[in-house]
């Protein structure tokens, strides 16, 4: 979490809230880094929506098949920050 174009957990939880809302009984500000998106109340359509927002805001391109494998915020952030082609942050 160093350079300006790195996506942080705070960035991700903000986009989860904006794109798909927050499940009742779930606190995204809590320790959620290794909690599965399923347990956080997000289905595949919610993930599609939030990944769309990540791609638009950060100019990254994430193949659909790799997204399905990223089952937790940590896994998704790793995917974004290591394999995503990050252009100038939007």
């Amino acid at each position: 979490m160093s350079t300006g174009s790195t996506v942080t957990l705070a960035d991700l939880t903000r986009m989860l809230r904006e794109s798909a809302g927050e499940e009742e009984g779930v606190d995204l500000d809590g320790d959620v880094l290794d909690v599965s998106f399923d347990d956080l109340g997000y289905d595949s359509l919610a993930m599609l929506q939030v990944v769309g927002q990540i791609q638009r805001e950060y100019g990254v391109r994430l193949p659909d098949e790799t997204i399905a494998d990223a089952e937790t915020p940590r896994a998704l952030l790793t995917l974004i920050n290591t394999t995503g082609e990050i252009s100038q942050a939007g």
Binding site: E18, S19, A20, G21, E23, E24, A46, Q49
Partner: peptide
């Protein structure tokens, strides 16, 4: 409306 339903 619950938060999860708002965007959809």
């Amino acid at each position: 409306i619950p938060s999860r339903l708002m965007p959809q």
